[in-house]
Design a protein around this nucleic acid. Structure first.
Lengths: 143, 143
DNA sequence: GTAAAATCATTGAGTAGTCAAGTATATGTT
DNA sequence: AACATATACTTGACTACTCAATGATTTTAC
């Protein structure tokens, strides 16, 4: 029985915990969207102008450029976001939050908050702070 | 700009960090296996008899029964694991680690350990302990 | 000012899962 | 003993990504 180091063991548990949590969120099926889509709406809503470059969204949520293209396709189709060109750089295509997208986020946010508190109750604030700090060191920089 | 609660924000960062780490592990392409397959080999190797029920493996790594069936198929095909019946319960089919599977784990473990230490250096032992404890509360019970 | 290198986004092909439904067996209830 | 419920696993159909390659544009270096 080979031993593995504590770092690796921790990363294995991180993967497990995340898998279970992700499934719980996705099963909520919040107003028709999944967890990643919810995070995209959150980031757009939270940005100054309600828009962002595709590559920046991808980096923030930790998926690839290809992944963001594919996630956004159905979201554009159902009208949660639209496309906008950048006048100074023709390579860039902004993702813009629509009023419908903003409204859906507002609704979904309530459901998501409830589940999040079920998983990590506010009274565990020490753990929440501690976890946030560790995740920040690991690249979790979403504010 | 709607605020979301700290618990939810933490879970969003957890998802991001995990996505990035998972991709790093999978890109290693450790001797032909991915991260989840590595964890399956680890759990089998670490078990008393080098075998486990499918459902128990699934629960431990946080995927569904369906998911474990699909993960194991190619692993059986390349001979890392085999199947064994349970005499007392015909519903059960054990997953058994083969010598080839054990050998591959031994090799892959070195690569995985190195990357894990790159992500969470051993000198951050306080963080590792702290993260392990928090993950344990969230259901991360792999030892 | 042109060539080389970098960046942004998309596409084709594939993988690692999901859920819902189904099969087989076992267990609990009366 | 019979019937209902629960458990273990698999399958069909799907989703949410991945990588590698490509096209288009911009930036950098000479």
């Amino acid at each position: 029985m080979l031993m593995i180091n504590p770092s690796l063991k921790t990363l294995i548990n991180l993967a497990k915990v995340q898998a279970v949590i992700a499934r719980r969120f996705d099963r909520l099926n919040m107003h028709g969207i999944g967890f990643t889509e919810f995070v995209i709406l959150y980031l757009l809503q939270q940005s100054e102008e309600g828009k962002a470059r595709r590559i920046d969204l991808a980096d923030k949520i930790g998926i690839t450029a290809s992944g963001i293209t594919r996630m956004l396709l159905p979201m554009e189709k159902i009208g949660l976001v639209t496309r906008e060109a950048n006048e100074r750089d023709a390579r860039v295509s902004y993702v813009v939050l629509t009023p419908a997208g903003k409204q859906l986020f507002t609704d979904a946010e309530k459901t998501a908050n409830t589940l999040a508190l079920e998983i990590m109750p506010a009274k565990e604030s020490k753990d929440i702070t501690s976890l946030t700090n560790i995740l920040a060191k690991l690249g979790g920089n979403i504010t």
